[in-house]
């Protein structure tokens, strides 16, 4: 075990959380990420029992998840495994695939609400994506305030916005400001 201590993408020792009316925003610092790309002509593996999803879709299986990022490319997630060498674990599950460690390339903000409507109102302030195409199990990569982000609809009432780690502060600002303005 290293004796160095990590900081979150927002530069703090603990993940940041905030509540704005119906919406809660929380930084998911424990999410491990690794990219998986198929080699030419390779058949898709099923790492951790995940059936790699179709275009613009996301799947989960226990602590693991996968979302489509491009043709023959996915991002594989693992809840709570950020401190492990997740890329190595994934490589073991997907032999021969191009696997790249991505955990620290991103910051994930989980947004939750009791109902779907506030999430969709928030999305309308942030991304130019029709909420009707972003139901549970859907994901999209798009622009948000000039930043490139993945938006995952984890469920009717939960949303994840995954952006570049170096932009965590700007992304938090954009999300929290939009959420605050929807408060009343």
């Amino acid at each position: 075990m290293t004796d160095l201590f990590p900081v979150t993408a927002l530069g703090d020792s603990a993940p940041r959380n905030a509540r704005f009316g119906a919406l809660t925003l929380s930084e998911n610092a424990g999410l491990a990420l690794a990219s998986l790309a198929l080699r030419k002509g390779q058949a898709a593996p099923a790492p951790f029992g995940l059936a790699l999803p179709e275009v613009a879709r996301a799947v989960t299986s226990g602590p693991h998840g996968a979302f489509w990022t491009g043709r023959g490319q996915w991002m594989i997630e693992a809840e709570g495994l950020a401190e492990t060498d997740f890329a190595a674990a994934l490589q073991g599950q997907a032999p021969g695939c191009a696997v790249t460690e991505q955990t620290d390339g991103w910051v994930a903000f989980e947004i939750a609400s009791d109902t779907g409507a506030p999430l969709e109102a928030l999305l309308a302030r942030l991304v130019n994506i029709d909420p009707r195409t972003l139901g549970p199990g859907c994901c999209v990569r798009t622009g948000l305030e000039h930043m490139s982000v993945f938006v995952l609809r984890r469920s009717e009432t939960r949303l994840a916005v995954i952006g570049m780690r170096s932009l965590a502060g700007s992304l938090w600002h954009a999300l929290s400001q939009a959420a605050r303005r929807l408060e009343d």
Partner: peptide, 30 residues
């Protein structure tokens, strides 16, 4: 530092003996 994954490159932009060391971003500060 006791087991943290890292990458080491012996490259120099300054002209001196130099390295660049890379660690997962959340450990950069530490």
């Amino acid at each position: 530092c006791g087991g943290l994954r890292a990458r080491l490159f012996r490259i120099s932009f300054s002209g001196e003996l130099a390295y660049e060391i890379a660690v997962p971003a959340r450990y950069g500060h530490a």
